[in-house]
């Protein structure tokens, strides 16, 4: 479980997070939704220790992340940020191999190689494993970075807008993979996502943020309600239910 305890963060004079507390359940997909500037990415950044909070703590497996060694924490928790353009001569396989760094510090063991192959296969990258990263399409590149995270084999996976700049087909592909990761490997996934319908369709829990606070947190079906969504986004939502899944129509505002 990821426990977030009264987290605050200011950038210059602006309060980006105000005493946020939250417990994210294990083995589920949790989506962070909210308008631009609500503090989603900052929250994710602090959970992943890329940013430091001004106040508050993150507890993972009953231990404050500050007390972990960097290397050990990297065996439990990984983050994938948006925008990863790398102009280097790096093959997909090289990139995925980096995922094993927390375990072997760059000296790959036979077990590492196995995990790397597995991760590459899991994301259907076997055919392009020797291709260079900068020659891939957006969807392939996103999958390659995800494969690195899979190879890192952490219990907790944080993703900042994993669908950014992907078309519908590739978005669905990525979300399916995440669902599998969660169901087959028991991973806990937390992601920032803008498309409310992807969040509704694929996530188990939704945390809705507004003005630096988490104003709603519950199972997805309890969040995808017109009045709650209106509360979060200040626009009108029409909820369409098909076979137990809820889709939002918010295009008539």
């Amino acid at each position: 479980m990821i426990q977030i305890e009264s987290l605050s963060k200011n950038f210059a004079e602006k309060k980006v997070l105000k005493e946020v507390s939250l417990s994210i359940p294990n083995g589920k997909i949790t989506s962070l939704v909210g308008s631009n500037g609500a503090g989603k990415s900052t929250l994710l950044g602090i959970i992943s220790r890329i940013l430091e909070p001004d106040q508050g703590a993150i507890i993972i497996s009953e231990k404050n992340i500050k007390e972990y060694k960097n290397r050990i924490l990297a065996q439990h928790l990984s983050i994938l940020k948006q925008s990863n353009h790398i102009n280097l001569k790096l093959t997909v396989r090289d990139l995925v191999s980096f995922g094993r760094f927390p375990y072997s510090q760059g000296r790959l063991t036979a077990e590492d190689e196995l995990k790397i192959d597995e991760a590459i296969a899991f994301l259907n990258l076997t055919e392009i494993a020797e291709d260079y990263i900068d020659e891939l399409s957006g969807g392939q590149r996103q999958r390659a970075f995800l494969a690195m995270v899979v190879a890192q084999d952490t219990d907790y996976i944080l993703l900042d807008e994993p669908l950014n700049n992907l078309d519908m087909k590739h978005s669905v592909q990525i979300m399916k993979i995440l669902k599998e990761l969660c169901q087959q490997k028991g991973k806990t996934i937390v992601m920032v996502i803008h498309d409310i319908n992807f969040a509704s369709y694929y996530s188990d829990y939704i945390a809705a943020m507004k003005g630096g606070q988490v104003i709603h947190f519950d199972k997805t079906e309890n969040i995808i309600e017109p009045h709650i969504l209106h509360d979060v986004f200040d626009i009108h939502f029409e909820i369409i239910e098909r076979g137990g899944r809820r889709i939002c129509n918010y295009y008539d505002n």
Partner: peptide
Amino acid sequence: ENAISLGL
């Protein structure tokens, strides 16, 4: 970010 995520 990636480097930190990998424990550096």
